[in-house]
Design a protein around this nucleic acid. Sequence first.
DNA 1: CCAAAAGTGTTTATTTTACACCCATGA
DNA 2: TCATGGGTGTAAAATAAACACTTTTGG
Lengths: 232, 232
Amino acid sequence: MRRYSQQKRFLFAVDCIIFGFDGQELKLMVIQRGFEPFKGKWSLVGGFVGEKESAEAAAARVLKQLTGLDGLYMEQLHTFSEHDRDTVERTVSVAFFALIDIQRYKKQINEDYHPAWFSINDLPDLIFDHNEIAELAKEKLRYKAALHPLLFELLPPKFTMPQLQNLYQCVYNTGFDKGNFNRKLLSTKLLMKLKDKDKLGSKKGAFYYKVDTKRYSASFNTFFNLVPGQNK
Amino acid sequence: MRRYSQQKRFLFAVDCIIFGFDGQELKLMVIQRGFEPFKGKWSLVGGFVGEKESAEAAAARVLKQLTGLDGLYMEQLHTFSEHDRDTVERTVSVAFFALIDIQRYKKQINEDYHPAWFSINDLPDLIFDHNEIAELAKEKLRYKAALHPLLFELLPPKFTMPQLQNLYQCVYNTGFDKGNFNRKLLSTKLLMKLKDKDKLGSKKGAFYYKVDTKRYSASFNTFFNLVPGQNK
DNA sequence: CCAAAAGTGTTTATTTTACACCCATGA
DNA sequence: TCATGGGTGTAAAATAAACACTTTTGG
């Protein structure tokens, strides 16, 4: 361990893996890079960290800039620091993943960015190590969502059980039994049944639920077992 | 998003939370800082990241320097980047936690560091945000060890079931049923029973086990349910 | 009335838990 | 021989899984 003054200084950035769900597919937001090098190439949403800003604050700022939304679900994923990961200059990047209700997303007025949603199963080539980062984010999302009910964050405040089940099925690429799914999700005690129904999905209509935010935040360290067939 | 050239550069460091187990208590290694400011104060083991070095490589180097050991279990924990966390100069730090068999640890010849082991329940005041980092590491260790059998890494290559159970009990501060513990651990199929016994712990003696490293590395993404009573 | 999707019930299998019991051995 | 800790057996409780059945309603 040596003195501060002898040490190199590096660029410090954040990259955001923004997941969205459109009712059909799990998607990831990418942009066309607005500056050289690789201007116009697909890239994760990111930015440099300001002088008096934490990585978390920078990521929130970037998210806000792109989606117009505050207070999104956001979580530190991993820090990427291979010395040659950015071909221009050594840059350390903290990756965050964020979950947004895609319907709440308003198209950014600022046309410097050209955001696009890609299915997570069909991502384009991204610059630098961004494909690797996105892969890790997908893994982490599946891992975490199997234990903690966080996929709510991808849906509107009011959602139906079939919608939620469909989302889980998209994330895990498999079919769930609706009876068991219902019971399991209700047994978390984190959902509150509302009085009105969504009538678009079916003739009968499905009741809306919303998250009991109090219990939700209180229970974030308890394990659930939300994805069947993981343990053998 | 602006040009590279306009951005600030920051110092970039790693901090290692080194867990060890002495058969009685879960411990954490801290050192007396060898340079100003705060020379002589307790601190996590850390160091700056070299010019062509990743954070992972830097952490491994620091670990080797301190313990004399290679190939330790090591995992990226979290990146700390509050602008004022280091009072000297803005420093971003990637924290890693490592697990070592305390008996394998050889006292470092280099007396610049003064490593000491503290019980994780009774840590001294550490510099900067290191107490916060250590807290997070403890949480993460408990979280992860409840799902994946990684506490093996804190024991010698050969260990007995009672030893392992005792370790779990120390980590979770609770008592486990030995019958259920045995069955659960054996059901992971990751342990191989050896022919010899440890006769120090009891008159009857307890069989040694070792980790089936092949299966161990293959199964690292499967969930187990190693800590009873987590789900209600 | 019927197809289609929502939602409920029920049976079976599996896992978890609690706790009793047997075993080996050094003092 | 007996106290001590290691190890096994087993019944009851709780969970999970599979799948059949009922409900609602627009066309």
